[in-house]
Design a protein around this nucleic acid. Structure first.
Length: 602
DNA sequence: CCCCCCCC
């Protein structure tokens, strides 16, 4: 099969002209910056006559490269692109082409070779061509003259320039180039926040902007905060110019951009009244709910689902500041068969109404893991939309209202349910062994009704670092001070903590277990402080505690994981919680399992 | 120049 490239199209494009849907060949690709969600790739493309390596792939097309779909020698139709003039230090200016959309006409594996004999395109070759017009057969009007308008050295950025067509794609912004105008839609805007720290104080608000090439966060501080807060409105489109670009701290945003920008005293903003529809609204990369369990904790995810259930508001006290917090957990489902809990905070929690089972889209929700189950939590920066006008949302609505509501779902946020989806099912040690729980990398969680057959009272209580999050065992300096190796400092005080080793048996087997502070307190029925006092002043009472608890029955929740100690692999099983038996519940479980085993109604 | 984002 012969593939025809759009010979000469590159020259037109690189001179600032337009060429409709050129066919080009990809000759190579190179990662130029970032990693993960912030990767950006440069392509070496050829139109058969020229080749050049200043084509950038818009980030939403990265997958085509990463998956290998867009391999070298692929012939592609470039459906949409924009170009941007970059002012370089020293070497004048360079135009880059940003590919926004492409269709693979023939995969590289099929083409297998370079087509034609393309010469490297340079600004010089363009100049040479312009100097020798007689050598160039002019078969069509040269669009260069109409488009290749060089920005004036010092453009007065009045509204006429702001509203001109000469806008730059967000993807092309960098700290190395400061003459630009973007035309961007405001995806979200934060409330005004004040801060006060060692470096000073102030106020700010931030907004997330997007155009078809990409997205970027912008922040307005102090004067600019006051000046622009009311002007900037979510979902509107603005021309924005003269902001300061700097490297983004990816810890705090999941926008696909290596940079973020700050408004300055020179920043110009003008609302765009026309063509607003050509600027896309929020870009999502939705993760199907059943795939959330495979993602790492503390990452930011985009998710869409139908709100299947809503819990009551809960009030709690933030441990570090004593602040009163309000939260609400809502459960989202999608057609993947998964369910996940999304936690809303503050006023978002208070005003939330899930009574109509709305579709919820969240951009940048934080994945958290607690006791082995994963859930999502909204941050201040999370963009939450109810019943958004998105294809995915309409699809979900249709699915949910036509049977999806009754579909069997696996709730990945169920507590202690890492196996088989059963949330609080009790299993036996024999079953835990048969299922090879603990063999994986991540550890497994299960519940079991068991008897405490032995407790190790030696070293069960220790003097721990008084710091809130530390808990490291202190070294007694014998001078009234205690040293924490982790904090690398000495303290006059300490707190008692428990670390209880014990054996648990059930009718099918037994297991050596470890219970840390809170779980050990639940088992021993005393606080760590009380037990510490006994250890110090009343050894008999101390020993008695550990004797009394022997042969008590508990409902345990365990986490188990195979670990290797000096070449010997053995299960490390820790107690997540230990509760006294609720016999009504225990009987119901027993009856259920008798029915299941015998097939007989009891 | 912020960057806290909570709790079981």
């Amino acid at each position: 099969m012969v593939h025809k490239l759009s010979e000469g199209s590159l020259e037109i494009i690189m001179n600032g002209g337009h060429y409709d849907k050129p066919i080009m060949q990809v000759l190579g690709s190179k990662k130029i910056q970032g990693s993960g969600a912030n990767e950006r790739f440069r392509l070496l493309v050829s139109d058969g006559k020229h080749s050049h390596s200043f084509a950038m792939l818009a980030t939403q097309l990265n997958d085509k490269l990463i998956t290998g779909e867009l391999s070298d020698y692929s012939v592609v139709q470039i459906d949409r692109f924009v170009t941007s003039l970059l002012k370089n230090t020293g070497k004048g200016e360079k135009r880059v082409m940003i590919i926004l959309d492409l269709t693979i006409v023939a995969p590289g594996t099929q083409v297998g070779k370079k087509l034609g004999n393309p010469q490297t395109w340079t600004e010089d070759s363009a100049a040479a061509a312009a100097a020798q017009p007689a050598m160039q057969p002019v078969s069509r009007p040269n669009p260069v003259t109409t488009f290749n308008i060089k920005p004036t050295p010092n453009p007065a950025l009045d509204s006429s320039i702001l509203s001109s067509q000469m806008t730059h794609p967000i993807a092309s912004l960098s700290p190395y180039q400061n003459k630009w105008v973007i035309k961007a839609r405001v995806m979200s805007k934060s409330p005004i926040r004040t801060w006060s720290n060692a470096k000073g104080e102030g106020k700010l608000f931030s907004m997330d902007l997007c155009d078809e090439s990409g997205e970027i966060r912008a922040t307005a501080f102090k004067n600019e905060c006051d000046k622009f807060y009311d002007i900037i409105q979510v979902d509107k489109v603005y021309y924005i110019s003269r902001c300061q670009l700097k490297t983004a701290n990816k810890q705090f945003t999941n926008l696909k951009n290596d940079y973020e920008m700050s408004f300055t005293a020179d920043t110009v903003v003008a609302e765009c009244m026309d063509e607003a529809s050509s600027v896309p609204s929020i870009k999502y990369e939705f993760v199907p709910i059943n795939e959330i369990a495979n993602k790492s904790p503390d990452t930011l995810l985009d998710i869409i689902g139908v709100c299947k259930s809503v819990a009551d508001i809960q009030e709690l006290t933030q441990r570090s500041t004593g602040r009163l917090l309000k939260k609400r957990e809502i459960t989202l489902v999608d057609s993947s068969g998964g369910a996940v809990v999304l936690t809303l905070w503050g006023s978002e929690a208070e005003k939330f109404d899930g009574s109509t089972n709305p579709v919820i889209a969240a951009k940048g929700a934080r994945l958290t893991e607690f006791n082995g189950s994963k859930s999502l939590s909204c941050l201040a920066s999370t963009m939450l939309r109810l019943n958004p006008d998105l294809p995915e949302a309409h699809k979900l609505r249709g699915w949910y209202d036509n049977g999806g509501a009754n579909m069997d779902i696996v709730n990945i946020s169920a507590r202690s349910g890492a196996y088989g989806g059963g949330s609080n099912e009790w299993i036996t040690f024999a079953e835990a062994e048969a299922r090879q729980l603990g063999a994986g990398d991540k550890g497994d969680y299960y519940s079991l009704l068991g008897v405490l057959t032995f407790t190790f009272s030696d070293n069960a209580v220790y003097k721990a670092c008084p710091q809130e999050q530390c808990n490291k065992k202190l070294v007694d300096q014998e001078n009234g001070l205690y040293r924490c190796e982790k904090c690398n400092r000495e303290y006059p005080n300490f707190k008692y903590r428990l670390l209880l080793g014990a054996n648990v048996s059930d009718p099918t087997g037994d297991q050596r277990i470890t219970a840390f502070n809170e779980a050990a307190e639940a088992i021993l029925g005393k606080t760590s402080a009380e037990i510490g006092q006994m250890f110090e002043y009343d050894k008999a009472a101390y020993s008695q505690i550990f004797e009394e608890v022997k042969f008590k029955t508990f409902v345990f929740k365990f986490r188990t994981k195979m670990e290797t100690y000096s070449d010997e692999a053995r299960l490390k099983t820790t107690v997540m919680s230990a509760q006294p038996v609720d016999y009504k519940d225990a009987n119901a479980r027993l009856i259920k399992s008798i029915k299941a085993l015998s097939g007989v109604e009891v």
